[in-house]
């Protein structure tokens, strides 16, 4: 990165091993480090802020309670009281994605959710949870999910395949939405920030010209914070809605 004219927006996504356990690929990389940091930060915050168990909460405890109630209401609204058994799952997903996204906003931090394999793994986890629980709870009636109630029989040959395809594409849309948002945001940010350096190396006029990408960088940074929170929310809301499908398959 020493050469100011060579901006590499992809470098930030590179995975480098920190501790290698040989060739099998299970080595502890920067990605693993930030997963551990993410989980560690969440656990530490939630546990430390609630040690007092105060009736009148401190600020830290109030934030933990707000997060709890926010996700709890989300799950309850989408999936009903029965969906609350999945509340720890949705809460873990929400917190993991949220904190991983926000960690990604720190310079030189690795963004765990910028890798499709991570978001895809989380999405598949949701998908499998829905399928397994859906069949376990409803048996074959779970397949009613693909037959919307109140649709005339002659439309069903068209509707059912659409429903099946949309159901099967859920893990893809869920994972790609998160991954692409984070990835694109980080690349854009890096490219605009790179413009500042490149223009700055051209001399005085370059510095003046660099003001525009600087403004853009600031604006995009703000936007990225919004996206980081929003995507965590979207991920959790969609998970809640999919879980609702598992509980109440007949729309």
């Amino acid at each position: 990165m020493a050469d100011p004219n060579k901006v590499d927006p992809i470098h930030q996504f590179a995975i480098t091993d920190i501790i290698s356990f040989g060739e099998d690929g299970f080595s502890f990389s920067n990605s693993s480090l930030f997963m551990v940091l993410t989980v560690g930060a969440i656990c530490l915050y939630l546990l430390l802020s609630t040690t007092g168990r105060s009736i009148i909460p401190s600020r830290a405890q109030a934030l933990s309670e707000m997060l709890y109630e926010f996700v709890a209401n989300m799950v309850r609204d989408s999936a009903g009281m029965e969906g609350m058994k999945f509340f720890p799952f949705v809460f873990s997903l929400f917190m993991f994605v949220l904190v991983a996204n926000l960690f990604g906003m720190f310079p030189f931090f690795f963004t765990v959710t910028s890798h499709i394999i991570v978001t895809f793994a989380l999405a598949i986890l949701v998908f499998l949870t829905v399928i397994v629980y859906g069949f376990w709870r409803n048996g074959p009636k779970f397949l009613k999910l693909f037959v919307p109630a109140g649709v005339p029989a002659y439309v069903l040959p068209i509707v059912v395949p659409i429903e099946i395809v949309s159901f099967l594409s859920r893990p893809i849309s869920l994972s790609v939405r998160l991954f692409a948002n984070i990835l694109a945001g980080h690349i854009t940010l890096k490219v605009f920030a790179g413009f500042i350096v490149t223009l700055g190396s051209l001399g005085f006029l370059g510095w003046i010209g660099a003001i525009l990408p600087l403004i853009m960088t600031v604006a995009i940074t703000a936007l990225e914070f919004l996206v980081a929170v929003l995507q965590a929310y979207v991920f959790a809301v969609l998970t809640s809605m999919y879980i609702n499908d598992a509980i109440h398959p007949s729309h």
Partner: peptide, 14 residues
Amino acid sequence: AGFGGQLFWLAVTF
């Protein structure tokens, strides 16, 4: 090449 490690550590951490 990075998939295995990420999946493994994601599973552990999550």
